[in-house]
Amino acid sequence: GTEDLKEEAKKALKKGDKERAKRALKKAGLSEDQIKKFIKEVL
Rank of each mutant, 00 (worst) to 15 (best):
T2R: 10
K11Q: 14
K37N: 13
K11T: 11
E19P: 06
G16Q: 03
L43M: 11
L43C: 09
L13Q: 01
K15L: 14
S31V: 03
D4Q: 12
E3R: 09
L43Q: 07
A21V: 04
E8Q: 10
A21R: 01
F38H: 02
G29L: 03
G29V: 00
L5Y: 11
A9V: 08
K18N: 11
K14Y: 14
D4N: 10
K36C: 10
D33I: 08
R20T: 13
K26I: 13
A12R: 03
E32D: 13
E8Y: 13
A9T: 02
K22A: 11
K10F: 09
L30H: 02
E8W: 11
E32F: 07
L5W: 14
K26H: 08
E41H: 09
T2F: 14
A21D: 00
E41A: 12
K22D: 05
K36G: 07
K10I: 15
G29A: 02
K14M: 14
I39T: 03
D17E: 07
Q34G: 05
L13V: 05
L5T: 03
L25D: 00
K10W: 09
R23F: 06
K18H: 15
D33G: 07
T2L: 14
K6I: 15
E32A: 09
K26N: 06
E32Q: 07
L43H: 05
K6N: 04
E32W: 10
G1Q: 12
K26F: 08
K26Q: 13
K6Q: 09
A28P: 00
K11R: 13
E7N: 10
D4F: 13
D17M: 06
D17H: 07
D17K: 04
E32C: 08
A9Q: 01
T2N: 11
K11E: 14
E41Q: 11
K22P: 00
R23V: 12
K36W: 11
R23Y: 07
K37A: 15
K36Y: 12
A21F: 04
L30Q: 02
I35Y: 02
A12K: 02
L13R: 01
K27A: 14
I39F: 11
G1D: 13
A28F: 06
D17G: 03
E8M: 10
K22N: 07
E41W: 11
A21T: 02
L5I: 05
G29C: 03
K15G: 10
K37W: 09
A21G: 03
E3Y: 07
E7T: 08
R23K: 10
D4S: 12
E7V: 07
A24I: 15
L30E: 01
